[in-house]
């Protein structure tokens, strides 16, 4: 029994450590600004832990110390008073020095992370209830394209993100790559991210923005520059307008006839709505509905058939579709790679 308890107790720190390496963790820093933030976190936590331990030791010592009986409480003993005075002054001085040190450290960290070069890769991120619009702006406007809930970036390069809230205040947070930055309606905030190694990092809205705030996630995928160029070329393409598959053709037809096309865009078709996420390459993204479900034909069908049960309060209405129409539309969307 004791052994079992001991095993259980020793597994707790292991489990806690496991939380440090994740695709969404400020302690698993993979980008320049996240690394300098992590250094700041470690510094402050370490110094504060030492101070806390010293204070605890002093307090426990004071509680346990045997005290000699003191006959005359009003009789001050000068040497003792002087000693106490010294100790208190030193502690106050140390506090001032440590806090000033923290201030300087955080000043330098902040200066490090807000470096924004005039890089050619600029992405406009729009925060909406409850998803992210992602617009790649390039030096050549004709080569820009729109996506949603998934950001791809090349490794080893600063990427400038222009953040704007399109309805309420949201906050852009990819803990492994950078700190938080708010998206505010009516103004554009900037943040620069940089990933040094390829990988997939999860981000999350970090400012309470309504009912489905918790389901407002996104992915940042860092690819090698060649992979990124290939991906961008694929995203720039419009959706195929012809297909041999009868079901997919029927699905496209249904999508255009039904209210779907009133809110969503699929480039290369008549669907040009802008209130919902762009679906031109929805089948190529890892998740649908802002990180709610992994993309698959079944998940797409489940989402379309009852969005208000999967993500109550979101702005996608339940569009009545017959089972055949639902099958066709989900096949069509899954085919949009």
């Amino acid at each position: 029994m004791t052994r079992r308890i001991r095993t259980a107790l020793s597994s707790v720190p292991l489990l806690l450590l496991g939380g440090c390496s994740n695709w969404q963790s400020a302690l698993d820093a993979r980008g320049a600004s996240a690394i300098s933030l992590k250094h700041l976190i470690v510094l402050i936590v370490a110094v504060c832990s030492v101070i806390w331990a010293l204070v605890m030791i002093a307090m426990i010592h004071a509680l346990w110390r045997r005290r000699e009986a003191w006959r005359a409480p009003l009789d001050l003993r000068a040497p003792r008073e002087r000693r106490i005075g010294w100790i208190v002054s030193i502690c106050v001085g140390l506090t001032a020095v440590i806090i000033a040190g923290f201030t300087v450290a955080s000043f330098f960290t902040t200066r490090n992370i807000s470096v924004a070069g005039q890089d050619d890769l600029t992405i406009r991120i729009g925060g909406l209830q409850w998803w992210w619009s992602v617009e790649y702006l390039g030096p050549d406007p004709a080569r820009g394209f729109v996506s949603a809930n998934e950001i791809h970036i090349p490794t080893g390069r600063n990427v400038r993100l222009l953040l704007q809230g399109d309805d309420v205040i949201h906050s852009f947070w990819v803990p492994s790559l950078a700190g938080k930055q708010d998206l505010i309606p009516g103004r554009i905030n900037e943040i620069t991210i940089r990933a040094d190694r390829p990988g997939t990092y999860r981000g999350q809205c970090a400012e309470f923005c309504g009912l489905q705030h918790a389901h407002m996630g996104f992915l940042v995928t860092a690819d090698t520059p060649e992979e990124f160029a290939k991906w961008a070329e694929a995203q720039r393409a419009t959706a195929a307008s012809t297909t041999d598959d009868e079901e997919i053709a029927a699905g496209r037809d249904t999508f255009m006839r039904k209210p779907c096309a009133g809110c969503h865009s699929i480039r290369g078709t008549q669907a040009t709505g802008t209130s919902g996420p762009d679906l031109t390459h929805v089948g190529s993204r890892a998740f649908i509905a802002a990180g709610l479900l992994p993309t698959s034909r079944g998940a797409l069908a489940a989402w379309i058939s009852d969005p208000q049960t999967l993500k109550p309060g979101n702005n996608m209405p339940l569009v009545p579709l017959s089972p055949d129409e639902l099958r066709a539309v989900s096949a069509y969307l899954a085919s949009l790679k």
């Binding site: 006839r257 039904k258 209210p259 096309a261 009133g262 209405p317 339940l318 569009v319 009545p320």
Partner: peptide
């Protein structure tokens, strides 16, 4: 007509 663009609830 917005019949084909919106659901009746909307």
């Amino acid at each position: 007509a917005f019949r084909d663009k919106m659901t009746s609830e909307q």
